[in-house]
Nucleic acid binder design. Sequence first.
DNA 1: TTGAAAGCGCTAACAA
DNA 2: TTGTTAGCGCTTTCAA
Lengths: 339, 339
Amino acid sequence: MQQVADEAGVSRTTVSFVLNNTPNVNISAATRARVWQAVANLNYARTFAARSLATGRSQTVAFILRQVPDELLVNGFLGGLLSGVTQAISADNYRLLFEAVGHDASAGAYTELVRTQRVDGLIISGPVVDDTELRDLHRESVPIVVNGKPDFEELYSVDVDNVASARTAVQHLIDLGHRRIAHITNGPLNYTASSDRLEGYRQALLNAGLPCEDRYIQINPTFTDQGGYEAMRHLLDLPERPTAVFAASDVVAFGAIRAIQEAGLHIPADISIVGFDDIPLASYLAPGLTTIHIPVVQLGVRAGEMLMQLIQGDPPVPHRVLLETRLVIRHSTAPLRES
Amino acid sequence: MQQVADEAGVSRTTVSFVLNNTPNVNISAATRARVWQAVANLNYARTFAARSLATGRSQTVAFILRQVPDELLVNGFLGGLLSGVTQAISADNYRLLFEAVGHDASAGAYTELVRTQRVDGLIISGPVVDDTELRDLHRESVPIVVNGKPDFEELYSVDVDNVASARTAVQHLIDLGHRRIAHITNGPLNYTASSDRLEGYRQALLNAGLPCEDRYIQINPTFTDQGGYEAMRHLLDLPERPTAVFAASDVVAFGAIRAIQEAGLHIPADISIVGFDDIPLASYLAPGLTTIHIPVVQLGVRAGEMLMQLIQGDPPVPHRVLLETRLVIRHSTAPLRES
DNA sequence: TTGAAAGCGCTAACAA
DNA sequence: TTGTTAGCGCTTTCAA
């Protein structure tokens, strides 16, 4: 930096002011030009650590993924999420530190990132179980945004409205004339995404004055396509088998589809099915899967924006943001056939 | 840090030595214990920027993805790659900075990360076009590892052997008795992944003494399933239509499958098809896609390991690592039916 | 075995 | 409009 100052014939302060475009400092255009020229000549770039030490800010946020490696592998949303977050924070010239941690109650290794001031804030993606360290951090006003459902209400969060989305999916089936509509959960009910979607299913049926029968509700404990397959097998064995199914995730829907096809039945002629997530490959399938589209990129963008606001000491309102989903109608659903 | 020193009744130097476990320094167990106790009492954590400034190392590597947001969205490999890299670098207590840049010749924004010493090394994933900045960086001995095919040979890289893998895929079809085997590229031929896979296809046919006919080779310019769909349509229109197809990516295979099914033909009874990539959802399909499995996680691990070696001044041998792929046989391929 | 002290490269308050 | 200077919090050499 001294070299740049020398080359430009000014002091280091001036160089710093020019480079930072510091407000409330009047520096002649000519001087600025000389400084920039010197910077260019010397191919100078300020040392990050020094700036960070002096300013007390790291210009970095951490993206914490609460997933084990195996889950990471099949996470079709990661790209969209990262893309969104990056987009949002790059406006303020922030960068993203990626960290994947498991589901352990206190996998708090990431709190170290904050304590050492390596990052200025945290985006946590995935279910947040009771984590005392996190609670402490939040109490100390560390900027934190959760992507999903936070464990305690005061946390800032962005999510989709699972209940309303599920209602939409089921309403679509009702609109097509279906009456015997089954539901396969996307996972165990202690996950809010699962229980909320089940709740939406219930609401849609009740609103339409349809009975909500337990035999048509399959709790899939696994999050996998295999779980969907087995659940569907049970449904197909029912005396009055459903004419439509709401599978609470696309992956589970895939499993269900396999079961249906193996049984010699056709989609959507014999059974309609709607999924949830709109994972990138949902459209590649034949028949293309009708499903609920989640705005993944937006999920990332909003989380990034909220975090930046928090970092800038400008708390976002409201605390919890729910993003709109939309029904994508492809070819796995059709009007009920009179039989 | 001074507080910790006071609390433990030692100097800051000693605290530093204990915390770093500095070698060649003998500190009594009792003293060490007191220091750690003080650290715990005060919930102390060293400021990252200060350490970084003093040591000249950032304990951070950048993961540069050469993809535009749209590609990122459907990147099924990202999770595996990140998982692998993270795994490899976490051993040395390194962290990962994620950055997505487009394909522009010199999208060199990321070189700033190096110049400012914000990161100690670079992993670049995706095609590297001629990038002068990158070349400069490499010449200055900045640790860089490319995931894929590097633009200039001297770069360290880890990749899969596309030629050999394609050969394996086609050999599988040959072994099943197929003679009229078509090929649909996964993208334009200026991408080495595409041209190398085509080359493997050729080699397999030649090795088997089969003719390699242009009419059975479809160059798909798009990387999309739609491209695969259209290419397959052309193949189906041929007077002697192929009995088997090697699609150079799973996504392209999906498109081809759609075309085949629309034509009223059955897989694998009428036409066998093998893909490439083994994207996470390849197995969800019915019929499950026979394909070439790419060890994504390992790709990340090796890249991470090589980078760490470079950072530690211990250049890995060899320069370029090719990882083994393997053929995953599912249900989209079957022996040739005598007709 | 421990301590003193000199940086690391920058920012920003203050002075000029 | 520009320069002086005191930190920011740590590492590490050298001396004790």
